[in-house]
Structure formats: structure tokens, C-alpha cells
Amino acid sequence: MSAGRDMAKPRVNRFWSTVGAFVVIYALVKWGIPAASREVTGLPFPLPVPGALVFIYMTLAVVALAILVTFSDEYLNEFVGPVKKFLRGDYGRVPRMVVLVAMPLLVGWQVYAVTVPDVAVPASLRIQHPSSNFPKSFETLKNPLASPSDADVQAFIEQAKANTVAFIPQVAADVKRWREANAGKHALDFIPTSPMKKFVAALKSDSVDQSTAKAALLEKTLFEGRALYAMNCRACHGDSTAGDGPMADGFKLRPINFTDNGTIETIVEGYTFWRVTNGGPGLPTEATPWDSAMPEWKLSLTEEERWKIIFAEYDLAQKTPRIPESH
């Protein structure tokens, strides 16, 4: 290290550069990140860094600055020098008096502010996927409707050929009305998606193959799942499962956004099924205060209906369930 170069370059004293760095980091955390977040997301909220994170980040900043100042005696002396001079009164007795009086008052005010009782809802640790009472029997469950057997597909083909495909009761009336208005059309034309159109066309030309039929069957399951989702879940979870349904604002915590990475795709299907089945009341005690408001859907939906909803939910969110790791 060249002493000459150091002398030529005007330098801020290490004490003030450290204090300055601390202030800059605080400003970034307190105002910089929220401003950048608002700019990036365009959301009309203040988007502050939560207090718990501010504490963590500023603690790390203090640790980092302490490390930088203390790793060498030379640096430490340079840092402590102005403090010692100040305490000796070299910068004047009045400033020293002001600081020595102000510091305890400032600390006292902070302690008071932290400990004084208030009526705010306290911060709490939430558990993302509470599962201590998750039964082992659920963990290997796979959605039975996601991979229909050859026999199921064959039965579907037979029903389709006979135009006797049955829909779930929740949509049967709509399908019936539509068929009355569209006489001569196949019942499956009610689902106007390309796999279904392809299947119906194949039916008409009597050239149905297993894979086209399977795709159409999955399409029907998806359609029914979406319908059930719209009837039972949409109000809270929203059209796209983003947790932004019309009732979402009524909750202390909005329903979770399933399109967010790290939510439903980090869990196996069996867990999703268990959560839908047992709802908020089925959560273990440690889930509090997560306090899910979701009903116990096993009381009002059949097992097949719940699986259909889950099938549609993953599709709407454009996510895939976690695949169990192999040994």
C-alpha cells in the first residue's frame, strides 16, 4: 500500500465514513427498498420493509461496519481517534455536553417507544405449511383424476359415442339448457376447447384414438373443476387463484396467492387435498395465528369434487404440484 497515494487522496475520516455508511444503509432500507418496490410493482401501497426485517438488516449493517473497523488495529485507532478527541473535549465542551445529554435521552426515548403498551396487532411468526397433524396416509395421495386409466378412457369413449356423457350436478342444468338451445350438437361441445373439439370431430368421423379421448376426458375434468372452483372458491381466491377474489379484502390476511412461486407448487398434492378437505379448523394448533378462514370442504364437497377443484386450481395458477423425491 503506498503511503504517498493515500496522502494525495483526500479521505473522509474512518469514523465519519462508517457513520455515513450506516446512515446510507438505513436510508436504503427505510425508503429506498419501498420506493423501488412501488416503482417495480406499481402497487398503490407504501410497501415498507417490515420492522422485523429492518431490525435484521440494520443488525447486519452494524456487524459489517464493526468488522470493517476492527479487523486491524490501524483501522480501529483511526475510528476511535475522533471519539476519544471528542470525549476529551478537543472539539469543544459545549458539543460534548450536548451529545452526552442527548444520547441517554435518545436511548431512553427509544426504550420508552418500544416498551410502551399500544393497541397494535403484534407481529407474529406464521407457519407457511402447518403440517404436524398431517396424516401420513395422505402424503402419497395422487390426484386420481389426473391420470385416468385406460378403462376410464374407454368408458368415456363409449359414453361420448352414445352421447350420454354425464356432468356433475352443479353444471348439469346449464348443459341441459345449452343442449336445448343447440339441438343436434354433441353434449361435449359445451366445452369449447381445442382438445374437446378435436375429440368430438374424431367421434363424428369414427376415428377416436385413446390419446385424443384421454385429453378430452382431462378437459372435461378441468372444466368441472373450474366450475366447482368458481362456485366455491373464487369469492376468496379470485378468478386466477391470485388470492384477489371479491371477498379477499374482508380478511385480516388476504387468501394466499397461488400464482406466487413457493406456494402450492412446493407441496405435494396430498397436502393440498388435506388442506382443502379439512380447511382452517383442521389445522394444527401451532398454525394459530395463521387462522385460515377456509371451510372444511369435506362437509360440503365429495372427494371427487375436491380433487377436481385441486386439478383446476393448479391449472388456473399454472403451477405443478411438488413431485416426491426419489431415493
Partner: peptide
Amino acid sequence: MGGGQYHPT
């Protein structure tokens, strides 16, 4: 944060 569970950024 707009009532959500996650900070958007």
C-alpha cells in the same frame, strides 16, 4: 402491504 402475506419484492 395491501393485505397480502408476502412483500411484493
